[in-house]
Design a protein around this nucleic acid. Structure first.
Lengths: 235, 235
DNA sequence: ACCTGAACACCGTTCAAGT
DNA sequence: ACCTGAACACCGTTCAAGT
């Protein structure tokens, strides 16, 4: 435990203090999120990470909302769009249904949100306008087109599909690891189970089925149901 | 402008300092929200409103999340469930389609969320377990039952319907009045319109239709599409 | 012209100490 | 036993003042 003289800053213990630009700030934000979660990606914490004061960030980003939208757009690059091109895997059923391929893409999107706690939540509010988001929209539209869904219905349907995927991810992702949220959900399940058949006949009739299924099973059904609805409901 | 001696506290300028209970705290929170919006309903601000310190509130409410859930449950009492019982209006088409009546109920729900900025946002995260929420679920289930939707599909469908309604309200409600959010949306619309037909053929093909329609028109279609999907998609 | 220290106006939550 | 003052550890955003 011999004390050592502090190494000079020029030997840079950190990856070097990067120049401040919109790009380097967003990159640092993505790193910080991976390390500590979106909740910790605040203007102040990020400024600290970048060895500067919070005011300096405002020269390059409009505020917290824009920052979170930029992170989302960046992470959307992780969504696997390849299932849309035909067989994405090696199992040989190359002409799998367009519905399955669409579900695979949406599931990949959901997983990206789910893997980054807080991101889904932010995705519900901020609709990014970057290339990764456009690519996702294009892919979903192409699959709906392939399935013969009329244009007008596809145009409105893509929004619903992404919305439902996002909301589901937010719900699940908000719950995981959060004891309070878990408790709250259990209270709801309990309330549904306890409902009197006199005052709430339908809830009582359905019983535990209201909360049945794994998240995966529910999500798979939801995607199918919404796609079917969009495909068959004229505007 | 003659200065007056301060009135003695006992004459109580405020509605009287209410005893602290879960109930009085939630009631004060609802009042505060009506007056200043959900954003201002913080533990500290609420404590100030109740003439006490924030620590005192923690004896009766678990924290901010529970508080917001309680406000939501309270406000859900404003949802108009009467359309479910038959003709809710005086125009004489008493046997209107169950789909229309369902849409009316969901629209009322959406409007309640929309009228209270921030509430929809909170509704996406907190699923309340109180009587008003149960009544809403029961009503939607009853209408789906009336429409002959199979039980299992109704059980999972009610969630999707409320989720879609909530998410749509959050999106619209977040945008209204917020210049930044408005700008962000316009940037997305612009990006969709600018998309090259070479790299994004489907987006280009659909053009402005991706962002077409009023929120009301879109929501009406969404409800119909999701109901149709849930009604026709087996689990 | 460009950047930022310091301030303003807030937060949620806890716990030791009081009544 | 019940309640709470005061503290801890943070926030977003702005703007006057510096370089």
């Amino acid at each position: 435990m011999t004390p050592r003289a502090p190494e000079p800053r020029s030997r840079r213990e950190r990856p070097a203090k990067p120049a401040l630009t919109h790009e380097t700030i967003v990159a640092a934000a993505v790193r910080l999120m991976a390390a500590e979660g979106l909740r910790r990606v605040t203007m102040r914490r990020l400024a600290q990470e970048l060895d500067t004061g919070p005011a300096s960030l405002y020269v390059y980003v409009a505020g917290t909302a824009e920052l979170h939208a930029a992170i989302l757009e960046e992470l959307l690059g992780e969504v696997d769009l390849t299932p849309a091109d035909g067989d994405g895997d090696s199992e040989g059923h190359g002409d799998s249904d367009w519905r399955d391929r669409l579900a695979q893409v949406l599931l990949s999107y959901t997983r990206v949100l789910f893997d980054h706690p807080g991101l889904a939540h932010s995705a519900l509010l901020a609709r990014p306008a970057g290339p990764h988001y456009l690519a996702l929209v294009e892919t979903v539209l192409a699959l709906l087109h392939q399935g013969g869904v009329p244009d007008g219905q596809a145009a409105w349907g893509v929004d619903v599909l992404l919305q439902v995927a996002t909301a589901t991810a937010a719900e699940q992702s908000g719950r995981a690891g959060d004891q309070d949220a878990e408790d709250e959900h259990n209270r709801l399940v309990e309330a549904l189970r306890q409902a009197s058949s006199r005052t709430h006949p339908r809830i009582a009739a359905l019983g535990g089925d209201l909360a049945s299924g794994t998240p995966q099973q529910r999500l798979a059904w939801i995607f199918r149901a919404v796609v079917n609805g969009a495909a068959t409901t004229p505007r």
